[in-house]
């Protein structure tokens, strides 16, 4: 069953057409990863889904409901939560206050403070600490916990691995199956291709705002991915979608 459906979406980042006539669907309960080089339009796409960048044209549908023009703050009760690029924790709030901020307009559901502390046991001991004092990896975990507390149907994670050591990234991704099992669908943007291929059910590769390759990780060859990622070969530069089981 389709949870999120994006049709012919075009979004500008400043004057640049960052997302260019993109269409994709996210099935309920899956992990879809979007990969692509710097400036491929990945973050702009997530921001458009979260309501931060208004699209120029096209449509976004969540659970059959058109949310294309819905402001960001109304998408939270509708079931969308974004873990933004660079974590963006509230620096003057404590760890627990950051988490509770996520519950401000959240939906009822399985995720609450206790459940997040269960997912990240170290967090409970440091709940009264200022969020700015945490390490990058710890901040990323809090940002995920904060998004979970709104009990989203669709969890958007933007560049989780940015600026973090690979071992830290792996540890954070380890909780992803728990999150999905609890009934959340995940749409991730990831620059680290091997990491994305490890955790995702399906993959989309973006190049200059268009989807140039899609498929299940085990059905794609490294060469295909590499070509799509860097835009090698004329077939991709024209924007024709690559082949893949979909």
């Amino acid at each position: 069953m389709t949870l999120l459906s994006i049709r012919d979406l075009t979004v500008y980042h400043g004057q640049l057409r960052a997302v260019d006539g993109l269409s994709l669907e996210v099935e309920r309960g899956e992990v879809l990863a979007i990969i692509g080089a710097n400036g491929a339009g990945k973050s702009t796409l997530l921001r458009a889904v979260a309501g931060l960048n208004p699209p120029a044209s096209g449509s976004i549908t969540l659970d059959g409901r058109d949310i294309t023009r819905m402001p960001a703050h109304k998408r939270v009760p509708a079931g969308i939560a974004l873990v933004p690029e660079g974590r963006r924790l509230f620096r003057s709030l404590t760890v627990e206050e950051n988490l509770l901020a996520g519950a401000y307009r959240g939906r009822p559901g399985a995720w609450n403070l206790a459940r997040v502390y269960e997912l990240f046991p170290w967090m409970a001991d440091r709940r009264a600490q200022n969020a700015a004092q945490l390490s990058g990896g710890e901040q990323q975990a809090v940002a995920i916990g904060r998004a979970l507390l709104s009990n989203p149907a669709l969890l958007l994670i933007d560049e989780l691995s940015l600026g973090l050591a690979p071992v830290v990234v792996r540890r954070i991704y380890e909780v992803l199956p728990d999150i999905v099992t609890a009934g959340t669908t995940a749409l991730l943007v990831e620059q680290d291709v091997s990491q994305a291929m490890r955790v995702a059910d399906r993959l989309h590769c973006l190049l200059e705002g268009r989807s140039v390759l899609r498929g299940r990780p085990r059905e794609l060859t490294p060469e295909q991915v590499e070509h799509a990622y860097f835009g090698i070969g004329t077939a991709y530069a024209g924007g024709t979608p690559g082949k893949g089981g979909d």
Partner: peptide, 23 residues
């Protein structure tokens, strides 16, 4: 909750809107 969102908005308005706060 509203008071927290006031402080959160002071830190980062855009992220506060991602928590469902109408700025």
């Amino acid at each position: 909750g509203l008071g927290r969102m006031l402080r959160a908005s002071a830190d980062d308005r855009e992220t506060a809107s991602l928590m469902g706060a109408d700025s």
